[in-house]
Amino acid sequence: MTEPGGAHRPIDKVADLASGIGEYIRQQRSSAKISLRQLSKLAGVSNPYLSQIERGVRKPSAEILQQIAKGLRISAEALYVQAGILDLPTGGPVGDAIRADTELTERQKQVLLDVYESFRRENAAGTVSPAADAAKTTTIPEEST
């Protein structure tokens, strides 16, 4: 519903977020080839409640999202962003790949993201680290025959 002047009411924004997170969870579940019933068991959430979340009828709490993320074996941060709890992280596809890596701990992921972002800021500012600069000017000697 819209108010005069075309503005959306706050309740509509909540409904949109609930619908968006539900669709995202459904997509993740489908790509993981997990049934609704399996995910409800893995996440410790009732089957009807999970179904309501996926259909956008219910907006889950951060705690429920964390349980669902564990069941899907994805980062809770990804679900928090989709649900509007967290802002979209920076880093593009590299950041997404780091966050999606299931073999890294959350701490390791954060350290990698911090280093990556510092390099991006350096490059954007036009400053290059001495190591990167040295790598550009280093030549490999030719072998003599």
Rank of each mutant, 00 (worst) to 15 (best):
M1W: 12
T2A: 14
T2I: 15
E3T: 10
G5T: 08
A7Y: 09
R9H: 15
P10M: 06
D12F: 06
D12N: 10
K13Y: 10
V14G: 02
V14F: 05
A15I: 06
A15Q: 10
D16Y: 12
L17A: 12
A18C: 12
A18W: 12
S19Q: 15
G20Y: 11
E23P: 06
E23S: 09
Y24P: 00
I25V: 15
R29F: 03
R29H: 04
R29A: 00
S30H: 14
S30K: 13
S30E: 15
S31M: 09
A32T: 02
I34M: 11
S35V: 01
S35E: 06
S35N: 10
Q38C: 05
Q38W: 05
Q38N: 12
Q38P: 00
L39S: 01
S40G: 14
S40C: 07
S40N: 11
K41S: 14
K41A: 15
G44E: 09
V45I: 15
V45F: 09
S46R: 05
N47E: 13
Y49K: 07
Y49C: 02
L50T: 01
S51Q: 10
S51T: 03
S51H: 09
I53H: 07
R55K: 13
R55A: 02
G56R: 06
G56M: 05
V57A: 12
R58K: 14
K59L: 14
P60D: 12
S61P: 10
A62W: 05
I64P: 01
I64L: 05
A69H: 09
G71A: 07
L72M: 00
R73C: 06
R73Y: 04
I74T: 08
S75C: 03
S75Y: 08
A76S: 15
A76R: 04
A78K: 09
L79C: 04
Y80L: 13
Q82G: 01
A83M: 01
G84T: 06
D87I: 00
T90F: 02
G91I: 04
G91W: 03
G91T: 03
G92S: 02
G92D: 01
P93E: 01
V94R: 02
V94M: 07
G95I: 00
G95R: 04
G95S: 04
D96R: 07
A97R: 10
A97K: 10
I98P: 09
A100R: 08
A100Q: 08
A100I: 00
A100D: 13
A100W: 03
D101K: 08
E103N: 11
E103W: 09
T105V: 04
T105G: 05
E106V: 04
E106I: 00
R107E: 10
Q108G: 03
V111T: 07
V111W: 08
L112P: 01
L112A: 08
L113C: 02
V115C: 05
Y116E: 06
S118E: 10
F119G: 14
F119L: 14
R120M: 14
R121D: 11
R121P: 04
E122T: 06
E122K: 14
N123V: 07
A124F: 08
G126S: 13
V128A: 13
V128N: 08
P130E: 15
A131L: 15
A132M: 02
A132R: 15
D133A: 15
A134H: 07
K136S: 13
T137P: 00
T139S: 11
T139K: 11
I140C: 02
P141L: 05
P141I: 00
E142I: 08
E142A: 08
E142Q: 09
E142L: 11
E143L: 13
S144V: 09
S144R: 12
T145W: 09
